[in-house]
Simulated scan of single mutants.
Amino acid sequence: MTEVTEPQPPTPAASGRAATIYDVALVAGVSHQTVSRFLTGFPGIRPETRARVEAALVELDYQPNLSARSLKSGRPHRIGALVHDETETGPSLTAHGATMEARESGYLLDLISLDAHDRDSIEKTLALIGPNSLAGVLALASTDEMVRAFDAARFTTPAFVHTEADDTRLAKTDVSRVGIPALIAHLRDLGHRRVAHVSGPANWSSGRNRARAFAAAVDELGLAHAGELPGDWSARSGFEALAGLEALPDATAYVVANDQMAIGTILALKRRGLRVPGDVSVVGIDDLPESAYIDPPLTTLRVDHAARGREAVASLIGQIEGVAPRPVHIEIPHVVVRESSGPAPAHR
């Protein structure tokens, strides 16, 4: 006799639909009530059953229905994230980390883009944010204008302002406290004694911090500060900082406040007939994915921006839920040595 098998319903992946608790229950071999109890944190589930449900959730990439969760708990599960300058490495990676942390914690992050330099437009945007649809507000503030606007705002939901404090309160994971001294020590060990800086914009706390950290580390390590050239984080500004000078600083190395400006700096030096690193070394900060593939590959400081975004969201969710925030590991900035830094030239 030929055995007849019942047709199986298509899997969520095959049908293109999102997985439900019924799909999870089927894969885990439990009832949908058990899956529901698991998702609501019910403690009385046997360890072996819990393990099967967890495995099924991962296999099906189950995403909770935020509307249903909000109705059940009586509070929304959406976070409004006030972001800016998404084309810049630090803000974009911080926002990405924040998005990932929110999603993994059962929240949806809505990105609201601001003009980081226009306080009036920032304040108008804040006035439009409705309190009833958001569980909280995450403000990613890099400029003085943003910090002042957020300080004056009256948030009607839990809010967390993520900003880099001026360097009196920096932590051991910060670029300025440990990263820039390590970068300059790398140049010192290569024999460089006169070092110049291409700085970020002065209305960004990170720009000020990096400039101050550069000056302090140069002094502490016994090197000579050969000058500071202003930039605005863009590759264009790194190029123009040097291209328009009648004479270059008397430096054998440049510490540039981010990788994008370092790319422009290298091009400007080459256009002036200098070899990098034969005549002058250049180092950056951030470790862009492209930095390993420019000519020459850029020595830079690797910074864990995404973890900072995760930490900010974890702190905000702690406020929302009235619990201690989930600890987030932030990698200490460290130097990635490539070909743009080399021994100081003997003739200089």
Rank of each mutant, 00 (worst) to 15 (best):
F214R: 09
V276D: 04
S73M: 13
A141E: 11
S205D: 07
S67G: 06
V147A: 13
V255Q: 07
R46K: 15
L223D: 05
H186C: 04
L39C: 11
N203C: 08
E86P: 11
V328W: 01
T300W: 05
S291D: 08
L183Y: 05
P289Q: 08
V137S: 10
K172M: 06
G130Q: 15
V255E: 08
Q63Y: 06
W233D: 03
T2D: 04
E164I: 14
A314T: 08
I112N: 02
D85C: 12
V328Y: 00
T5W: 11
R302V: 09
V83D: 06
V147D: 06
E220L: 06
V256R: 08
H117E: 13
L301F: 09
R326E: 12
H305C: 02
F42T: 13
H96E: 04
A18T: 10
I184C: 01
I285M: 10
P47E: 12
Y62E: 06
D85A: 15
T89N: 07
F42V: 11
L26D: 08
A149T: 12
D166W: 08
H117A: 12
H197Y: 03
G284Y: 06
G130L: 13
T168M: 14
A68Q: 11
A235M: 14
K270F: 08
E3D: 06
V27F: 02
A135D: 12
R326A: 12
S133M: 14
A18I: 01
E104F: 05
T20Q: 08
E145F: 12
T89Y: 11
T2R: 14
S15L: 12
A68N: 10
E220Y: 01
F38N: 11
E311N: 09
P158T: 13
H32I: 03
P325W: 07
G227I: 02
D250K: 01
R302F: 02
G231V: 02
T157R: 09
P289A: 14
A185H: 05
T2F: 07
A215P: 03
V195F: 01
T300G: 08
L108M: 13
I112A: 01
T49I: 15
R154Q: 14
S315D: 09
A202I: 05
H334M: 03
D174K: 09
G322K: 09
Q63H: 13
G90P: 01
D279M: 04
S105N: 12
T143A: 15
S340A: 05
I45Y: 09
L109M: 12
L26S: 13
I330E: 06
S341Y: 00
V328F: 00
A243Y: 03
N209E: 07
G90I: 09
F38G: 10
A251G: 03
S176F: 05
S237R: 09
P297Q: 07
R210F: 07
P249S: 02
